[in-house]
């Protein structure tokens, strides 16, 4: 009897390579890798769902504008207000436009846009695809001889990847306008001298790296949302979990990517 029990326990242990949690983690990473690989395989294969891509671009881009506008504008004003006392101590308040434009274009606009999109767009994608998964709509697409990955995932990931840089540039513009209003109210600086001073310190590398960075953030948000939605299980609870996991995973990845890209760009600079 004792031998049998021991034998059963051994069999249980042998079902896992390392431990149940680690095995699950690594198999999850492998599944994600396959999911991403499938995106690049399907991306260049016809049919191209251009109408659906355009619809998703509208959903991701246009529908995010109100929130992005408000956040960008407030960031511009608040950041300017908070930076002024420190610069005034050194008699360097004329450097405000340069400081703001560097901070906004290099870091704030890409990061803020990505975090807002992760919360708004990422959760939306996770919940929508999750709900389609648990109500068998994805299976229905598959049995009607349509590739659901191509129609649902490729279009959404493409939309987030293309629209995030556009949203980032818009955020930067709105934040700069907010900042200008504050600078103009306090220092009576004209718009022309604010822009001249602000953009004199910005290089092509700054703009290019921010655009590139937000494309990566957009791709991450799209993939995380689609992956979580596609793998949703257990009814409505699973849909909620998918939406939540999409936001958490994409935010975590955005910070990691930001750190890596900053290191690379600084090395190039």
């Amino acid at each position: 009897m004792a031998f049998n029990l021991k034998n059963k326990n051994l069999q249980k242990v042998r079902r896992h390579l390392i431990s149940p949690r680690l095995d699950e983690f690594f198999s999850g990473v492998y599944r994600l890798y396959k999911f991403i690989l499938e995106f690049f395989k399907q991306l260049f294969r016809p049919p191209f769902e251009m109408q659906e891509v355009a619809r998703q671009c509208y959903e991701v881009g246009y529908r995010s504008l109100p929130l992005i506008s408000l956040t960008g504008f407030i960031i511009g004003i608040v950041f300017t207000k908070q930076s002024r006392p420190s610069l005034q101590e050194f008699g360097a308040s004329s450097w405000l436009p340069s400081l703001i434009s560097i901070a906004v274009i290099r870091a704030l606009a890409p990061l803020v846009t990505a975090l807002i999109a992760a919360g708004k767009v990422g959760s939306n994608i996770g919940a929508e695809l999750g709900s389609m998964k648990v109500t068998e709509q994805i299976d229905a697409m598959e049995v009607s001889a349509t590739n659901p990955y191509k129609f649902l995932v490729v279009t959404r990931v493409l939309a987030t990847t293309l629209m995030l840089p556009v949203l980032m540039m818009y955020t930067a513009l709105v934040a700069m306008m907010g900042s200008y209003l504050n600078v103009h109210a306090n220092e009576l600086t004209s718009l022309r001298s604010f822009l001249d001073s602000g953009f004199s310190t910005i290089s092509f590398l700054d703009i290019f790296s921010s655009i590139f960075k937000t494309m990566i953030f957009g791709f991450t948000i799209g993939i995380a949302g689609c992956y979580q939605g596609f793998n949703a299980t257990q009814g409505t609870q699973g849909v909620g979990r998918a939406a939540n996991a999409a936001v958490v995973a994409s935010m975590f990845m955005i910070f990691v990517e930001e750190m890596i890209i900053v290191q690379i760009v600084n090395a190039i600079r």
């Binding site: 929508e128 068998e136 709509q137 299976d139 229905a140 009607s144 349509t146």
Partner: peptide
């Protein structure tokens, strides 16, 4: 394949649901 819960695409009209497999 007729699904238990019909599995109609929520974001599309009835017309778009029906045309979906044909268009593709």
């Amino acid at each position: 394949f007729s699904f238990q819960n019909s599995a109609l695409y929520d974001s599309m009209t009835v017309r778009e649901n029906l045309a979906f497999p044909l268009v593709r």
